[in-house]
Design a protein around this nucleic acid. Sequence first.
DNA 1: TCGCACATGTAACGTGTTACATGATTCA
DNA 2: TGAATCATGTAACACGTTACATGTGCGA
Lengths: 184, 184
Amino acid sequence: MTPRSLTTLEYALLGLVTQSPQSGYDLRKTFETTAMGSFSGSPGAIYPALRRLEKRELIQGEVDATTALRPRMVFRPTKAGREALEAWLVQSIDRGDVERRVDELMLRFALHSVLGRSAPTHRFLESFLKEVGDYLTELNRQQRDVPARTPVQSRLALAAGIEQYRAFARWARKAVKAFEEETP
Amino acid sequence: MTPRSLTTLEYALLGLVTQSPQSGYDLRKTFETTAMGSFSGSPGAIYPALRRLEKRELIQGEVDATTALRPRMVFRPTKAGREALEAWLVQSIDRGDVERRVDELMLRFALHSVLGRSAPTHRFLESFLKEVGDYLTELNRQQRDVPARTPVQSRLALAAGIEQYRAFARWARKAVKAFEEETP
DNA sequence: TCGCACATGTAACGTGTTACATGATTCA
DNA sequence: TGAATCATGTAACACGTTACATGTGCGA
């Protein structure tokens, strides 16, 4: 009963219904049609997750009678839901996040729009930039110290990782600038 | 009993013991210390996975008595194991792979070293390049058609995805060249 | 009337996470 | 003596995947 934390999918759902109240079906469509597909859109995952969020009173569903079709359950966040979401959004970023959960970080960033203020987004980007930089240092070290007989493919795979994180770093710097121009 | 396919972790383990026979402990260390950490190194995942691979006769463990410490179980692939691995390595790449399983694709690429020949790696890169290109077209389309009131953060998150895949494309082109220079 | 898009769900299954347990050897 | 490293494991738990089920309204 304690405020145990949620799964990535649950946060994604909570975030989306906070951006705009919608039904399970709408959420599925969003996952299917946008780049958020990595967070799965199978009904077998979404509907149970929505039920869990409802049971914890983080969202509440309401039947939308306006449609002529089969009645839709439209979900919106409760006060507790908004709080839980915001707490997650402003969580500090650690090494593990950038190492193995970059996609989740990007989801968090995208949902920062529900915060209104821009300060947390600034902090997010600065923090992200720092952790990515640290990890890049580590990856470069790994690349330098690669054992002699390491096959080309393995070396190249490591290089791919490095390029990927370099791209993230460049993106973050650009994003910081984009924000500074908006909020002087 | 039919040759059902394996999980990513199982393929990772199978690939690593094919590169060089080793124990569960060694494998854990590899996951912990290298950039492969995203494939989890918890004992609660590794040891059961090794047991499953053994039960399917894709690997076999042998007690290494040479060490003074607690006896180690050193695993190596069986013939069937090598075949299963190779079949996975040369599998064709589809859109879903690049959209939601890029990390798995990079693992596959790294393990291509066990193939000896370079032709499959060539095919992999060409195919990867094509799918990434297609997906980039789709992402660019999404960016162009972004709904009017879409918040900055969401737009930027999409931009991050685009930059990420552009980096992959650049990497793949460089990798192709690196291979052409090696095998003229 | 056939099929498709809308709309929501359930059940079985396997797997990863977390946390705990064990026991030997080496080093301070 | 205690801590750290080596080395392997187990148990509870919850989650996601896959596949299936169900029913409506609309257009061809």
